[in-house]
């Protein structure tokens, strides 16, 4: 479904990604793990078109998309839950969800999807007229996820959805990720919480200072000694 082939991304003199290649197949949850600054977010930002790779290709369903502007990437079926949630703080919960559907024109379908999100996250419905900035961290994360689903993505990119949340909420968020996957959305998940990520993913990649260090099935990686040492705290 998604193929990244040897992309390089530089921020000025800093080389953020060096020859990174990865693949996501339809129906999978693929985890991308690594330390701070390893290039996980940059990978997602490249897919979304927020940064342009200096070289390499990004191919989605057979189409080269590495020169697409961000709004085009959304139109072809890729949406992102950005790092740190990034809800629009001064806009209401409802407006945030409506913005998630910006690329769509089918009013009835949008309404239906908003209702579905309210069914999944009842707390968002209670607060639908409240500015998103007044929500708690967990609620904001749910809003960010709901908002990303509003474009009906085929591929959902999630950047650290568990960041800064209480352990109980972390579990809840991962359950939600699994549920979204089960309803047919492919997921590329970036996480520092490697244990959780590997527990729900089919496959995973490990990024170290901008390059791929390892890849394999989530099970393999979770049992790998180096991964255990570096990311699972054994």
């Amino acid at each position: 479904m998604l193929n990244i082939e040897n992309i390089d991304v530089n921020y000025g003199a800093i080389r953020a990604l060096v020859q990174v290649s990865l693949e996501v197949n339809e129906g999978e949850i693929v985890a991308l793990i690594g330390a701070n600054g390893a290039g996980k977010s940059t990978t997602l930002r490249s897919i979304s078109g927020l940064v342009k790779p200096q070289s390499g290709k990004i191919i989605f369903e057979g189409k080269e998309i590495h020169n697409f502007p961000p709004h085009k990437v959304v139109e072809i079926g890729i949406s992102q839950v950005p790092e740190g949630r990034r809800v629009f703080p001064l806009m209401t919960v409802l407006e945030n969800l409506e913005l998630g559907a910006f690329s769509r024109k089918d009013r009835a379908g949008i309404k239906e999807d908003i209702n579905n999100i309210f069914l999944r996250f009842p707390r968002l419905e209670e607060r639908k007229q409240q500015p998103a900035g007044t929500l708690s961290g967990g609620e904001q994360q749910m809003l960010a996820i709901g908002r990303a689903l509003m474009s009906r993505p085929k591929l959902l990119l999630m950047d650290e959805p568990s960041m800064g949340l209480a352990p109980m909420l972390v579990q809840e968020i991962f359950n939600i990720v699994k549920e979204i996957n089960q309803t047919g959305t492919t997921i590329l998940l970036v996480e520092q919480n490697a244990r959780m990520a590997l527990s729900i993913a089919n496959r995973a990649y490990v990024l170290e200072t901008g390059s791929l260090a390892m890849s394999g099935s989530a099970k393999e990686l979770a049992e790998n000694e180096e991964v255990q040492k570096a990311y699972l705290g054994h």
Partner: peptide, 25 residues
């Protein structure tokens, strides 16, 4: 309006607005 909401979103968070499918240009 749709465009008005997109303007507010863009002014609050430029990159995230683009991630919503808003053509910020």
């Amino acid at each position: 309006t749709r465009i008005g909401k997109a303007m507010r979103a863009t002014s609050q968070d430029y990159d995230t607005a683009a991630l919503m499918g808003i053509n910020v240009n």
